[in-house]
Write a protein that binds this DNA or RNA. Structure first.
Length: 355
DNA sequence: AACGGAATCG
DNA sequence: CGATTCCGTT
């Protein structure tokens, strides 16, 4: 096998993506549309799933973003989901290493990133060099289908299935969204989540403030909107979000300093430290078996106090995985994003391989 | 730098 | 399908 990184071997088992109506209801999920479940088509693809051993670029980017040591190379900056490639050559190099493409460079990398525009996974922040933005409504769905389906009132009542074949799905309501994000400004400092009919009242009567919710900005068929390209407030202190929590902020979920529960945040407390893990553990049948041994249910708030040893386990035996809100991060603990000793098959027409 | 077409690959 | 490669254009 080429380019075996530790990370590729530690991936979580893929979560079943298709449910029968019976299964769906047992999971507390809404059986939506003819296909059965509320994810975009590409989310079904094994290559896109967290369990896939073939890492995808957007996943790799998240991986880099999640690690502190790469903050000089690539980092979250600006609006929610927005990141800046500070060292394009280095990011390209790392990507090249991972994919065993010695000739990778930013020019090619950026071409690959552009591929995601159509998929609505990424879009370009115009006017800012090397700055892109994730559409988290896509990313989160791919990585936390269970969380989304079984636990989120917002996603329970709604769907991302393209809108065409789901007459039984209700549209995204402001209330549903607000209920998911308790710390979002209600209408306090003049900022409400919604412009009530003020600007351009759509058929729904109110318009989501996409600048506040950039990760809902595209790919949400119930709210068909083009990606919002310019966020009105470019914030100077990075990570200063209305709800005061960046899920990807190292320290919130970082592997290196385990669990610090954000005061109130994206997910209900019983989802910490790892929403997927916990939700899996609570589930009866096949799903709980997806967890590694010893990680099943019970504590609920495990990881908060339940440290095995040391600060994080880097010292002791098993490194304690504190997971950022996507299971792919399981791969992160001590892996080698840019490891020197990658086992790339000699690539055709390869360049740098010595010997 | 950023974009998109086109051919190609695994 | 998800890139990679090459390239011409803005």
């Amino acid at each position: 096998m080429d380019c075996n990184c530790v990370s590729d071997l530690l991936l979580t088992p893929p979560v079943p993506a298709l449910w029968t109506p019976g299964e769906a209801s047992r999971m507390g999920a809404l059986f939506c549309g003819s296909r059965g479940i509320a994810f975009p088509d590409w989310a079904y693809k094994p290559e896109s799933s967290p369990g896939s051993r073939q890492i995808q670029l957007w996943h790799f980017i998240l991986e880099l973003l999640q690690k502190e040591e790469y903050q000089g190379v690539i980092a979250w900056q600006g609006d929610y989901g927005e990141f800046v490639i500070k060292d394009p050559d280095e990011v390209a190099r790392l990507w090249g290493i991972r994919k065993c493409k010695p000739h990778m460079n930013y020019d090619k990398l950026s071409r690959a990133l552009r591929y995601y525009y159509n998929k609505r996974i990424l879009h370009k922040t115009k006017g800012k060099r090397f700055t892109y933005k994730f559409n988290f409504s896509k990313v989160v769905l791919v990585n936390y289908p269970l969380l989304d389906m079984a636990s989120s009132p917002f996603l329970l009542q709604n769907h991302f299935n393209g809108g065409s074949a789901a007459p039984d799905c209700s549209p995204v309501t402001p209330e549903a969204i607000q209920s998911l994000f308790p710390r979002l400004p209600e209408s306090g400092r003049g900022t409400s989540l919604f412009d009530r009919g003020a600007t351009a009242p759509g058929p729904e009567g109110e318009k989501l403030r996409l600048d506040t919710f950039p990760f809902l900005s595209s790919g949400t068929p119930c709210y068909s909107k083009p990606p919002s390209l310019l966020g009105p407030y470019s914030r100077n202190p990075p990570f200063d979000y209305p709800w005061g929590f960046n899920p990807y902020l190292p320290g919130a979920f970082s592997l290196n300093n385990c669990p610090k529960l954000p005061p109130g945040s994206l997910y209900p407390s019983h989802f910490y430290p790892n929403p997927l893990q916990t939700s899996l553990g609570q589930l009866p049948h096949p799903f709980s078996s997806l967890l590694p041994p010893g990680e099943v249910a019970g504590g609920g708030e495990r990881g908060v106090a339940g440290q095995t040893g040391g600060t994080n386990g880097t010292a002791g035996g098993q490194p304690r995985l504190c997971l950022p809100p996507y299971p792919g991060a399981l791969t992160l603990g001590r892996t080698d994003i840019g490891n020197g000793g990658s086992i790339c098959e000699r690539e055709r027409g390869d360049a740098n391989t010595p010997g």
